[in-house]
């Protein structure tokens, strides 16, 4: 699919967005071809645009797609031939290279895995999971899936704990995969953060223009417009950085990986602050579920962990780039 087409499709999808439940929306995305493995070959800019658009609408959808794309990307980077009809499960909030809690034993081209992996995103009818550099079947008696865990955000997308006991999987890549995958998925993670920030900002501006206190629209109180200005400037700076680094990445410019990692961490942190201010502008109404600000706040704090613990990513950044 061409990137232009991809964006057209997401626009089309977004127009019909109010009509369906999360499951139905996911199915619609699937039917439109967003879960095709080949999509990962698209330029990063296109993927980021799609994810930003989706995240602005519902971050859970964006995260579902992100985790599938990350898993498919891992297989693609390793040139591992595996074509799944259904979405792939992926522990999107774990450090990609984390394997210390798994016991593995390579035998006859297979890998026998025992251990527990927490908070794996189980999108749709996933039959396989990509965990670090292992492809693991989710069917069969050796794998147990927990009931969905309760989480801060991204609630409509089930997070499950996967327990493996002598499960036969495949080690499809060497450890070198991790840095590559991290580089490739950093900007999409940033795009999700930016999409959430955008919708929180839009809602805040809209509310501030209509809500009156002290005899005038609250946007006319300088404390309010100062905050809105700051939020807008932060968002615009983030958007500029994201599009610049996406272009760098698509052009394969030297150093794009460093800038991608930095942009992701900064935008994820920014989304937390911005969505918190997004509630604040609405006052008590922001604290209720009515305007969606509380959901954006939860989703921002939740998705800051996409690709793993932020301090670990900073440490990794220091080790690789400083």
């Amino acid at each position: 699919m061409e990137s232009g087409l991809l964006i057209q499709l997401i626009e089309k999808f977004s127009k019909r967005r109010g009509e369906r439940s999360f499951g139905e929306k996911l199915k619609a995305l699937q039917e439109l071809g967003f879960f095709q493995a080949a999509l990962c070959e698209q330029g990063i800019s296109a993927l980021c645009l799609v994810l930003q658009e989706l995240a602005a609408f519902d971050a859970a959808l964006a995260v579902a797609l992100f985790s599938h794309w990350a898993a498919a990307q891992a297989l693609r980077l390793a040139r591992f031939d595996f074509n799944s009809e259904s979405p792939l499960a992926f522990p999107a909030f774990r450090n990609i290279s984390e394997t210390q809690d798994l016991q593995t034993n390579d035998r006859d081209g297979r890998c026998i895995i025992t251990g527990k992996v927490e908070s794996v995103l189980l999108t749709g009818q996933a039959t396989h999971a990509v965990i670090a550099n292992f492809l693991v079947p989710l069917t069969g008696g050796t794998v147990t899936l927990s009931a969905p865990v309760r989480t801060l955000g991204i609630r409509s997308c089930p997070h499950v704990d996967i327990s493996m006991s002598q499960t036969s999987g495949v080690r499809f890549a060497s450890d070198e995969l991790f840095d590559q995958l991290h580089d490739r998925m950093a900007l999409p993670a940033a795009a999700i953060a930016l999409g959430i920030s955008r919708s929180s900002l839009d809602e805040a501006v809209l509310y501030a223009k209509t809500r009156k206190q002290g005899g005038k629209e609250i946007i006319k109180w300088s404390e309010v417009w100062m905050l809105l200005s700051q939020m807008t400037m932060q968002f615009r700076t983030g958007a500029a950085a994201l599009s610049r680094v996406c272009a760098q990445a698509d052009a394969g410019e030297a150093g794009w990986e460093r800038d991608a990692a930095a942009t992701a961490v900064c935008l994820q942190e920014l989304a937390c602050a911005l969505t918190s201010d997004g509630i604040q502008i609405l006052g008590g109404a922001g604290y209720t579920t009515e305007f969606g600000q509380e959901k954006r706040f939860r989703d921002a704090f939740h998705t800051q962990h996409l690709l793993g613990l932020l301090p670990s990513r900073k440490r990794r950044f220091a080790a690789r780039f400083i």
Partner: peptide
């Protein structure tokens, strides 16, 4: 706390996510 705890932090059973949700109201009322 959430940054230190990573994905453990967003799981309700570990309580911090609830504390965050609860605390936010203190900035409002």
């Amino acid at each position: 706390a959430l940054r230190l705890m990573g994905q453990s932090g967003f799981r309700s059973e570990n309580r911090v996510e609830k504390i965050l949700r609860d605390v936010k109201l203190l900035q409002i009322y």
